[in-house]
Design a protein around this nucleic acid. Structure first.
Lengths: 224, 224
DNA sequence: TCAAAAGTGTTCGTGCTACACCCATGC
DNA sequence: GCATGGGTGTAGCACGAACACTTTTGA
């Protein structure tokens, strides 16, 4: 039985959302710049306390929508961070989430709460407030593992895409080059995508065949 | 900035520990039987509120030690469960942990807090209090995934063991038979164990060579 | 006609799978 | 001597890795 009314636990529960996208051929995280002390001027991942009658996932989704306008992104629980000293202002336990959004569907919303909001390349991040360095590091690891063992990439790409775009997303996230022929064969053999019949246009080279995911939902599949 | 003093969040933080062992050739979970209403008589995984100045991991370790006397088991964070209605007595968010202990090192401690405490086979569990059915299900999935991709088995076995015992642990957890020759080759090729030179005694058949893990700590290794 | 990305097959080696018999001991 | 689990090798196949040239388009 958990509840004892004579015991005063004064710990707050927050959520932090590590929101990834691939943009300009780079893996990026959404960061906000803080206004108030003691973290004034520092960058952090968006987050906040949860409401009394809301789950942490609902809170993460709310934050995601507030910051990016995206409502149907892939969202999964990452891990709970609860070091006693992680927030200078008091004991706050944070349930962190990872969200993946296609960059073409995002419109960043500036609010008064933050000095700034920006996509920052994972390969070159400033040092972050709270324990957010650690959270982002672990989120990147999770993303790498998941992209190899499931079809979540769908959530980073627009509805139609060329196989080379898909390959590029993998290469950015895994931070290593992949063999074009092997990659194409693998993806096509897995039967996760289908040709739309359309082709890319407007580039000074051969147009690419455009594909779409057969199912836009996450499933467990060994990809690499 | 998380803290707003005009906002009253009244949510408690607990931890629940799903403690596994392999005993009598079966995968088992440690369950306690509850005394108080509204869950009186129901079985549950051991857990409790965390202290103000303690992390959830420390709390989980404390619970593990209180119940089993084990101090150096493998312990890892599983997931946070925070359905608004998961505890009938109020809003409690639980950070669940998975612990693995070798059955030979455990001595269960009965306390007044519980009606009973017992190892129960995962293949045949009663229905549990709170959302503990779900927690245990997810814990078993995690255990299956982890045993294939890391060397955590060491934490379920005594210091010395026969390869057939090791194989049996895998078979119980994965709930499928493995080929003896392939399994032995795989384990020996991976170079994780070494012969102790000793052999098992006292059985009505050929004595087995006894092995030990070279390193009794967890690392990421693809096993199956 | 040139630059730039799209598209396409084959070979080789590694590692997983399947499979059956003899060995050492206690009773 | 028999029942019980311990211990051993090989062949086939699937899969991943490495690798280079032709095609199509816009400028």
């Amino acid at each position: 039985m958990y509840i004892k009314h004579d015991m005063a636990q004064t710990i707050l529960i927050a959520t932090d959302a590590v929101i990834f996208t691939v943009q300009d051929n780079e893996l990026k995280v959404l960061l906000i710049q803080m206004v108030k002390l003691p973290y004034q001027g520092l960058w952090a991942v968006p987050g906040g306390l949860i409401e009394q009658d809301e789950t942490t996932e609902q809170a993460a989704r709310r934050i995601l929508e507030t910051q990016t306008g995206v409502t149907d992104a892939h969202l999964e629980q990452l891990q709970t961070f609860d070091s006693v000293t992680r927030d200078q202002l008091g004991r706050v336990v944070s349930v962190a989430y990872v969200a993946l959004v296609p960059s073409d569907s995002v419109s960043l919303k500036t609010t008064e709460k933050y000095a700034d909001i920006r996509w920052m390349p994972v390969s070159n991040l400033p040092s972050l407030a709270y324990d957010h360095d650690e959270i982002v590091t672990i989120a990147v690891e999770r993303l790498r593992a998941k992209i190899e063992s499931s079809n979540i990439v769908w959530s980073l790409l627009p509805k139609e895409f060329a196989l080379s775009q898909l390959q590029s997303v993998y290469e950015k996230i895994l931070a290593k080059p992949l063999d074009k022929r092997n990659f194409r064969r693998k993806i096509l053999d897995l039967n996760l995508v289908e040709s739309t019949g359309r082709r890319s246009t407007g580039s000074a080279h051969r147009p690419a065949e455009l594909f779409a995911f057969k199912q836009r939902k996450t499933a467990s599949v060994k990809i690499l």
